[in-house]
Design a protein around this nucleic acid. Sequence first.
DNA 1: TGCTTGTTCTATAACTTATAGAGCAGGAAG
DNA 2: CTTCCTGCTCTATAAGTTATAGAACAAGCA
Lengths: 130, 130
Amino acid sequence: MILNVDLTSDTPIYQQLRDRIVEAIAEGVLTEGSLLPATRALAADFGINFHTVNKAYDLLRQQGLIRLNRGTGAVVTLTVADPPFRADWTARARTLLAEAAAKGLPPEEVLATCRSMLDSFGANQPKDTP
Amino acid sequence: MILNVDLTSDTPIYQQLRDRIVEAIAEGVLTEGSLLPATRALAADFGINFHTVNKAYDLLRQQGLIRLNRGTGAVVTLTVADPPFRADWTARARTLLAEAAAKGLPPEEVLATCRSMLDSFGANQPKDTP
DNA sequence: TGCTTGTTCTATAACTTATAGAGCAGGAAG
DNA sequence: CTTCCTGCTCTATAAGTTATAGAACAAGCA
Protein backbone atom coordinates (compact mmCIF):
# COMPACT_ATOMS: atom_id res chain seq x y z
CA MET A 1 0.00 0.00 0.00
CA ILE A 2 1.37 3.43 -0.98
CA LEU A 3 0.17 6.41 1.07
CA ASN A 4 0.95 9.76 -0.48
CA VAL A 5 1.53 12.20 2.38
CA ASP A 6 2.92 15.71 1.90
CA LEU A 7 4.85 16.85 4.99
CA THR A 8 5.00 20.44 3.70
CA SER A 9 1.25 20.75 3.13
CA ASP A 10 -0.82 23.02 5.36
CA THR A 11 -3.31 20.22 6.07
CA PRO A 12 -2.26 18.28 9.19
CA ILE A 13 -0.28 15.07 8.63
CA TYR A 14 -2.67 12.96 10.71
CA GLN A 15 -5.57 14.22 8.59
CA GLN A 16 -3.78 13.39 5.34
CA LEU A 17 -2.98 9.93 6.68
CA ARG A 18 -6.63 9.40 7.59
CA ASP A 19 -7.79 10.63 4.18
CA ARG A 20 -5.38 8.37 2.27
CA ILE A 21 -6.47 5.32 4.28
CA VAL A 22 -10.16 6.15 3.76
CA GLU A 23 -9.47 6.41 0.03
CA ALA A 24 -7.61 3.08 0.07
CA ILE A 25 -10.66 1.47 1.70
CA ALA A 26 -13.00 3.04 -0.87
CA GLU A 27 -10.76 1.85 -3.72
CA GLY A 28 -10.78 -1.69 -2.40
CA VAL A 29 -7.02 -1.67 -1.83
CA LEU A 30 -7.88 -2.23 1.82
CA THR A 31 -10.81 -4.53 2.51
CA GLU A 32 -12.51 -5.87 5.62
CA GLY A 33 -9.86 -7.72 7.61
CA SER A 34 -6.86 -6.01 6.02
CA LEU A 35 -4.04 -5.39 8.44
CA LEU A 36 -2.66 -1.85 8.67
CA PRO A 37 1.03 -1.19 9.40
CA ALA A 38 1.99 -0.80 13.06
CA THR A 39 1.95 2.82 14.25
CA ARG A 40 5.70 2.87 14.94
CA ALA A 41 6.52 1.19 11.65
CA LEU A 42 4.41 3.63 9.61
CA ALA A 43 5.85 6.58 11.52
CA ALA A 44 9.39 5.39 10.78
CA ASP A 45 8.37 4.98 7.11
CA PHE A 46 7.44 8.65 6.81
CA GLY A 47 10.04 9.91 9.24
CA ILE A 48 7.36 11.27 11.56
CA ASN A 49 6.43 10.75 15.19
CA PHE A 50 4.38 7.67 16.06
CA HIS A 51 1.98 9.84 18.06
CA THR A 52 0.92 11.47 14.79
CA VAL A 53 0.10 8.07 13.25
CA ASN A 54 -1.69 7.18 16.46
CA LYS A 55 -3.94 10.22 16.06
CA ALA A 56 -4.84 9.23 12.50
CA TYR A 57 -5.65 5.68 13.57
CA ASP A 58 -7.72 7.00 16.47
CA LEU A 59 -9.79 9.11 14.05
CA LEU A 60 -10.40 6.05 11.86
CA ARG A 61 -11.45 4.06 14.93
CA GLN A 62 -13.89 6.78 15.98
CA GLN A 63 -15.40 6.66 12.50
CA GLY A 64 -15.83 2.91 12.71
CA LEU A 65 -13.45 2.07 9.88
CA ILE A 66 -10.77 0.15 11.78
CA ARG A 67 -10.38 -1.74 15.02
CA LEU A 68 -7.26 -1.49 17.16
CA ASN A 69 -5.92 -4.53 18.99
CA ARG A 70 -2.83 -4.69 21.14
CA GLY A 71 -0.30 -7.18 19.95
CA THR A 72 -2.20 -7.81 16.71
CA GLY A 73 -2.35 -4.29 15.26
CA ALA A 74 -4.98 -2.29 13.38
CA VAL A 75 -7.55 -4.13 11.27
CA VAL A 76 -10.08 -2.73 8.77
CA THR A 77 -13.60 -3.38 10.10
CA LEU A 78 -16.46 -1.75 8.26
CA THR A 79 -19.58 -0.64 10.09
CA VAL A 80 -22.79 0.72 8.59
CA ALA A 81 -23.27 4.44 8.10
CA ASP A 82 -25.56 5.70 10.88
CA PRO A 83 -27.91 8.71 10.56
CA PRO A 84 -25.57 11.14 12.36
CA PHE A 85 -22.79 10.28 9.91
CA ARG A 86 -25.12 10.70 6.93
CA ALA A 87 -26.26 14.12 8.18
CA ASP A 88 -22.70 15.27 8.75
CA TRP A 89 -21.57 13.93 5.39
CA THR A 90 -24.43 15.58 3.55
CA ALA A 91 -23.66 18.94 5.16
CA ARG A 92 -20.02 18.70 4.11
CA ALA A 93 -21.01 17.63 0.60
CA ARG A 94 -23.36 20.58 0.39
CA THR A 95 -20.53 23.00 1.19
CA LEU A 96 -18.19 21.38 -1.32
CA LEU A 97 -20.79 21.34 -4.10
CA ALA A 98 -21.69 24.95 -3.31
CA GLU A 99 -18.08 25.88 -3.83
CA ALA A 100 -18.11 24.31 -7.29
CA ALA A 101 -21.42 25.98 -8.15
CA ALA A 102 -20.26 29.38 -6.87
CA LYS A 103 -17.15 29.12 -9.04
CA GLY A 104 -19.36 28.48 -12.07
CA LEU A 105 -18.54 24.82 -12.69
CA PRO A 106 -21.40 23.34 -14.76
CA PRO A 107 -23.57 20.96 -12.67
CA GLU A 108 -23.37 18.24 -15.34
CA GLU A 109 -19.58 18.39 -15.24
CA VAL A 110 -19.52 18.21 -11.43
CA LEU A 111 -21.89 15.26 -11.46
CA ALA A 112 -19.86 13.51 -14.16
CA THR A 113 -16.69 13.94 -12.09
CA CYS A 114 -18.40 12.50 -9.03
CA ARG A 115 -19.82 9.59 -11.03
CA SER A 116 -16.46 8.70 -12.53
CA MET A 117 -14.78 8.77 -9.12
CA LEU A 118 -17.50 6.60 -7.57
CA ASP A 119 -17.21 4.21 -10.52
CA SER A 120 -13.45 3.95 -10.06
CA PHE A 121 -14.06 3.06 -6.41
CA GLY A 122 -16.52 0.34 -7.36
CA ALA A 123 -14.21 -1.08 -10.04
CA ASN A 124 -12.21 -3.45 -7.79
CA GLN A 125 -14.68 -3.98 -4.99
CA PRO A 126 -14.86 -7.04 -2.69
CA LYS A 127 -17.66 -8.57 -4.79
CA ASP A 128 -16.26 -10.92 -7.40
CA THR A 129 -13.34 -9.85 -9.55
CA PRO A 130 -13.82 -11.82 -12.80
CA MET B 1 -29.62 36.99 4.34
CA ILE B 2 -29.47 34.54 7.27
CA LEU B 3 -26.10 32.98 8.05
CA ASN B 4 -26.27 30.01 10.37
CA VAL B 5 -23.08 29.99 12.43
CA ASP B 6 -22.52 27.75 15.43
CA LEU B 7 -20.15 29.37 17.94
CA THR B 8 -19.79 26.12 19.90
CA SER B 9 -18.80 24.02 16.88
CA ASP B 10 -15.27 22.71 16.58
CA THR B 11 -14.91 24.10 13.06
CA PRO B 12 -13.50 27.66 13.14
CA ILE B 13 -16.00 30.52 13.03
CA TYR B 14 -14.30 32.22 10.08
CA GLN B 15 -14.50 28.94 8.13
CA GLN B 16 -18.21 28.54 8.89
CA LEU B 17 -18.82 32.13 7.81
CA ARG B 18 -16.97 31.50 4.56
CA ASP B 19 -18.89 28.25 3.95
CA ARG B 20 -22.30 29.89 4.57
CA ILE B 21 -21.49 32.75 2.19
CA VAL B 22 -20.25 30.33 -0.50
CA GLU B 23 -23.53 28.42 -0.11
CA ALA B 24 -25.52 31.66 -0.36
CA ILE B 25 -23.75 32.44 -3.63
CA ALA B 26 -24.41 28.93 -4.96
CA GLU B 27 -28.07 29.21 -3.99
CA GLY B 28 -28.44 32.49 -5.81
CA VAL B 29 -29.31 34.35 -2.58
CA LEU B 30 -26.18 36.38 -3.29
CA THR B 31 -25.53 37.21 -6.92
CA GLU B 32 -22.86 39.18 -8.80
CA GLY B 33 -22.89 42.70 -7.40
CA SER B 34 -24.59 41.82 -4.10
CA LEU B 35 -23.31 43.86 -1.19
CA LEU B 36 -22.14 41.95 1.89
CA PRO B 37 -22.59 43.40 5.40
CA ALA B 38 -19.69 45.48 6.74
CA THR B 39 -17.20 43.44 8.77
CA ARG B 40 -17.92 45.35 11.98
CA ALA B 41 -21.68 45.12 11.48
CA LEU B 42 -21.61 41.36 10.83
CA ALA B 43 -19.31 40.84 13.81
CA ALA B 44 -21.69 42.76 16.07
CA ASP B 45 -24.56 40.67 14.67
CA PHE B 46 -22.97 37.43 15.84
CA GLY B 47 -21.33 38.86 18.93
CA ILE B 48 -17.87 38.02 17.62
CA ASN B 49 -14.72 40.00 16.90
CA PHE B 50 -14.54 41.88 13.60
CA HIS B 51 -11.10 40.38 12.95
CA THR B 52 -12.77 36.99 12.64
CA VAL B 53 -15.17 38.29 9.98
CA ASN B 54 -12.23 39.95 8.28
CA LYS B 55 -10.49 36.59 8.01
CA ALA B 56 -13.56 35.01 6.41
CA TYR B 57 -13.85 37.85 3.89
CA ASP B 58 -10.15 37.59 3.13
CA LEU B 59 -10.54 33.89 2.34
CA LEU B 60 -13.44 34.68 -0.01
CA ARG B 61 -11.32 37.36 -1.69
CA GLN B 62 -8.42 34.93 -2.18
CA GLN B 63 -10.86 32.51 -3.81
CA GLY B 64 -12.08 35.18 -6.17
CA LEU B 65 -15.64 35.25 -4.90
CA ILE B 66 -15.83 38.79 -3.54
CA ARG B 67 -14.02 42.10 -3.95
CA LEU B 68 -13.26 44.38 -1.01
CA ASN B 69 -13.46 48.15 -1.38
CA ARG B 70 -12.83 50.70 1.33
CA GLY B 71 -15.77 52.93 1.93
CA THR B 72 -18.07 50.85 -0.24
CA GLY B 73 -17.76 47.44 1.41
CA ALA B 74 -17.56 43.86 0.14
CA VAL B 75 -19.17 43.00 -3.20
CA VAL B 76 -19.78 39.59 -4.78
CA THR B 77 -17.70 39.32 -7.96
CA LEU B 78 -17.53 35.93 -9.62
CA THR B 79 -14.42 34.81 -11.49
CA VAL B 80 -13.96 31.67 -13.57
CA ALA B 81 -12.64 28.49 -12.00
CA ASP B 82 -8.97 28.13 -12.97
CA PRO B 83 -7.14 24.78 -13.35
CA PRO B 84 -5.48 24.93 -9.88
CA PHE B 85 -8.88 25.41 -8.28
CA ARG B 86 -10.35 22.52 -10.25
CA ALA B 87 -7.47 20.23 -9.25
CA ASP B 88 -7.81 21.16 -5.60
CA TRP B 89 -11.57 20.81 -5.69
CA THR B 90 -11.40 17.40 -7.34
CA ALA B 91 -8.93 16.16 -4.72
CA ARG B 92 -11.23 17.26 -1.92
CA ALA B 93 -14.25 15.74 -3.66
CA ARG B 94 -12.35 12.50 -4.04
CA THR B 95 -11.70 12.32 -0.28
CA LEU B 96 -15.31 13.14 0.57
CA LEU B 97 -16.73 10.58 -1.88
CA ALA B 98 -14.23 7.99 -0.62
CA GLU B 99 -15.59 8.53 2.87
CA ALA B 100 -19.11 7.79 1.68
CA ALA B 101 -17.95 4.73 -0.27
CA ALA B 102 -15.89 3.42 2.67
CA LYS B 103 -18.93 3.72 4.95
CA GLY B 104 -20.93 1.63 2.47
CA LEU B 105 -23.27 4.32 1.12
CA PRO B 106 -24.60 3.10 -2.27
CA PRO B 107 -23.06 5.08 -5.17
CA GLU B 108 -26.50 5.71 -6.71
CA GLU B 109 -27.70 7.22 -3.45
CA VAL B 110 -24.61 9.43 -3.15
CA LEU B 111 -25.02 10.59 -6.74
CA ALA B 112 -28.73 11.25 -6.23
CA THR B 113 -27.95 13.36 -3.16
CA CYS B 114 -25.38 15.36 -5.10
CA ARG B 115 -27.76 15.81 -8.02
CA SER B 116 -30.59 17.06 -5.83
CA MET B 117 -28.30 19.55 -4.10
CA LEU B 118 -26.94 20.85 -7.41
CA ASP B 119 -30.51 21.11 -8.70
CA SER B 120 -31.56 23.11 -5.67
CA PHE B 121 -28.67 25.50 -6.33
CA GLY B 122 -29.72 25.93 -9.95
CA ALA B 123 -33.38 26.49 -9.01
CA ASN B 124 -33.17 30.27 -8.40
CA GLN B 125 -30.20 31.16 -10.53
CA PRO B 126 -29.48 34.56 -12.15
CA LYS B 127 -30.84 33.43 -15.53
CA ASP B 128 -34.48 34.40 -15.92
CA THR B 129 -36.90 33.68 -13.12
CA PRO B 130 -40.24 33.22 -14.98
C1' DT C 1 10.13 -15.21 28.76
C1' DG C 2 10.66 -12.04 25.13
C1' DC C 3 8.84 -9.62 21.47
C1' DT C 4 5.45 -6.72 19.21
C1' DT C 5 1.53 -4.19 19.56
C1' DG C 6 -1.55 -0.39 21.16
C1' DT C 7 -2.15 2.88 25.21
C1' DT C 8 -1.18 6.44 28.43
C1' DC C 9 1.49 9.97 30.72
C1' DT C 10 4.24 14.33 30.88
C1' DA C 11 6.58 17.97 28.40
C1' DT C 12 7.85 21.22 24.94
C1' DA C 13 7.96 24.33 20.70
C1' DA C 14 5.55 26.25 16.90
C1' DC C 15 1.41 27.45 14.93
C1' DT C 16 -3.72 28.58 14.79
C1' DT C 17 -7.87 30.61 16.52
C1' DA C 18 -10.26 34.30 18.66
C1' DT C 19 -10.14 38.17 21.24
C1' DA C 20 -9.00 43.30 22.05
C1' DG C 21 -7.76 48.03 21.08
C1' DA C 22 -5.49 51.51 18.51
C1' DG C 23 -4.77 53.74 14.52
C1' DC C 24 -4.24 54.45 9.27
C1' DA C 25 -6.25 55.08 4.47
C1' DG C 26 -9.50 55.48 0.90
C1' DG C 27 -14.20 56.43 -0.74
C1' DA C 28 -18.86 58.76 -0.12
C1' DA C 29 -21.74 62.48 1.38
C1' DG C 30 -22.85 66.52 4.04
C1' DC D 1 -13.17 70.48 3.79
C1' DT D 2 -15.00 67.85 7.17
C1' DT D 3 -17.31 63.90 8.75
C1' DC D 4 -18.45 59.28 8.57
C1' DC D 5 -18.14 54.67 7.10
C1' DT D 6 -15.42 51.41 5.09
C1' DG D 7 -11.48 48.10 4.68
C1' DC D 8 -6.77 47.50 6.40
C1' DT D 9 -2.75 47.09 9.46
C1' DC D 10 -0.32 46.88 13.73
C1' DT D 11 0.65 44.97 18.40
C1' DA D 12 -0.78 41.98 22.15
C1' DT D 13 -2.81 38.25 24.65
C1' DA D 14 -5.08 33.75 25.98
C1' DA D 15 -6.56 29.31 24.65
C1' DG D 16 -6.33 25.57 21.67
C1' DT D 17 -4.04 22.54 17.96
C1' DT D 18 -0.20 20.22 15.79
C1' DA D 19 3.95 17.73 16.00
C1' DT D 20 7.69 16.41 18.45
C1' DA D 21 10.07 13.51 22.26
C1' DG D 22 10.81 10.07 25.81
C1' DA D 23 9.20 6.97 29.19
C1' DA D 24 6.46 3.52 30.86
C1' DC D 25 2.37 0.33 31.03
C1' DA D 26 -0.73 -3.51 29.20
C1' DA D 27 -2.57 -6.95 26.15
C1' DG D 28 -1.57 -10.62 22.70
C1' DC D 29 1.38 -14.02 20.70
C1' DA D 30 5.33 -17.35 20.00
